[in-house]
Simulated scan of single mutants.
Amino acid sequence: MLSRAADNLYWMMRYVERAENMARMLDVTHRMSLMGADTGMNQWDAALIIAGADKPFALRGGSATPRSVIDFLAFAPDNPSSIAACLKGARENARAMRAQITNEAWESINAAWLEMRTLTLDKVEADGLRGFFDWVRDRSHLFRGVAEGTMQRGDAYRFMRLGTLIERADSTARILDVKYHILLPSPRDVGGAVDYYQWGALLRSVSSFRIYRQIYRDSITPLRVAELLILRDDMPRSLHNCFSEIVEIMQHLRVHYRRDYESVRLAERLLMKLRYGTIDEIVAKGLHEYLTEAIDQNIELGSMIAQDFMHSA
């Protein structure tokens, strides 16, 4: 596959996944902010940090209010990670790849972008923010489902999956890190109703509340949430699950192209850490330090994938 085509398909899915993750994070932040809980910092500042958009937002000036943050993370055209910018980027990459993706997949992402262009913050506030966040998530599910249900399982599909999984792993690690390291409740709230609601909201933000109940059948505890989202291979959005599929795809590409890529070796090393690690070892090292390293290594892997497969002649 041409490196340019691989790059378009890879980023098409990264943008779709990022838009969905942004909607999930904003939805949970909005619901948690309505509680007025004492978390040690502004929930909306935390949302900017999760999105990696705190510095660009600060350049605008002004405080992190619900309206200003939602506008910046959902609608701002000058924020490349906003929902609007991500859907636009996904649509532009899909348009460039009309010959590689099915008509159904193109129509799905094109319809999502056309509808997004009609939306404004005032309109979604009038209609209900929850409905907008659900719409973004549903459009992402629809596009991904149509693509997976109609596309041949060739290299085009594999690069699309790589984009989804790299972005998903990054989002899971960021959300978990911010809850542990930044949104720590005051000592009087640890183990209380507010703390329980926050952990429940985090699980719902990654569609894992019911999975947690099915596996642990007990009250929600931080260590078990961390174990679920980092080490459980049977949890669709866990780091372990993401890297299991990333390695499987990259090993196939290594055999197919008959080249020994450094990115494949890095992915295999990261998977081994997840496969044989334990939550006690992670906590002993420091969960924040572990997650920060995981985010950095995921970024490094993304850069190496681009170098190995998308920047070649």
Results as ranks from 00 to 15, higher is better:
residue 120 T to N: 07
residue 120 T to E: 04
residue 121 L to V: 11
residue 121 L to I: 14
residue 123 K to P: 01
residue 125 E to T: 12
residue 125 E to F: 05
residue 127 D to F: 09
residue 127 D to G: 05
residue 129 L to T: 07
residue 129 L to D: 01
residue 130 R to G: 12
residue 131 G to K: 15
residue 135 W to H: 03
residue 138 D to G: 04
residue 139 R to G: 01
residue 143 F to H: 15
residue 144 R to S: 10
residue 147 A to S: 12
residue 150 T to Y: 10
residue 152 Q to A: 15
residue 152 Q to L: 15
residue 154 G to I: 08
residue 154 G to C: 05
residue 155 D to P: 02
residue 155 D to S: 14
residue 157 Y to Q: 11
residue 161 R to Y: 00
residue 163 G to E: 04
residue 168 R to D: 13
residue 170 D to P: 05
residue 171 S to K: 10
residue 173 A to R: 04
residue 173 A to K: 03
residue 175 I to F: 14
residue 176 L to K: 10
residue 178 V to I: 15
residue 178 V to F: 06
residue 178 V to C: 14
residue 178 V to Q: 13
residue 180 Y to V: 11
residue 180 Y to L: 14
residue 182 I to T: 03
residue 182 I to D: 03
residue 184 L to M: 14
residue 185 P to H: 12
residue 185 P to F: 10
residue 186 S to Y: 08
residue 189 D to E: 11
residue 189 D to P: 01
residue 190 V to D: 09
residue 190 V to C: 11
residue 190 V to Y: 13
residue 191 G to C: 08
residue 192 G to T: 02
residue 192 G to Q: 07
residue 193 A to R: 14
residue 196 Y to G: 05
residue 196 Y to H: 10
residue 198 Q to C: 13
residue 198 Q to P: 03
residue 198 Q to V: 12
residue 199 W to A: 07
residue 201 A to D: 07
residue 202 L to Y: 11
residue 203 L to K: 10
residue 203 L to F: 09
residue 205 S to V: 05
residue 206 V to Y: 04
residue 206 V to Q: 04
residue 207 S to M: 12
residue 207 S to K: 11
residue 208 S to K: 08
residue 210 R to K: 15
residue 211 I to G: 00
residue 211 I to D: 01
residue 213 R to K: 12
residue 215 I to A: 08
residue 216 Y to S: 08
residue 218 D to P: 05
residue 220 I to W: 00
residue 221 T to F: 05
residue 222 P to L: 01
residue 222 P to N: 04
residue 223 L to H: 05
residue 224 R to Y: 03
residue 230 I to K: 04
residue 230 I to M: 14
residue 230 I to N: 02
residue 231 L to P: 06
residue 232 R to V: 07
residue 234 D to A: 13
residue 234 D to I: 13
residue 235 M to K: 00
residue 236 P to Y: 01
residue 239 L to C: 08
residue 241 N to P: 00
residue 242 C to T: 08
residue 242 C to V: 04
residue 243 F to I: 00
residue 244 S to N: 06
residue 244 S to I: 00
residue 245 E to F: 01
residue 247 V to S: 00
residue 247 V to T: 04
residue 248 E to D: 09
residue 251 Q to I: 01
residue 253 L to C: 06
residue 254 R to L: 01
residue 254 R to F: 00
residue 256 H to A: 12
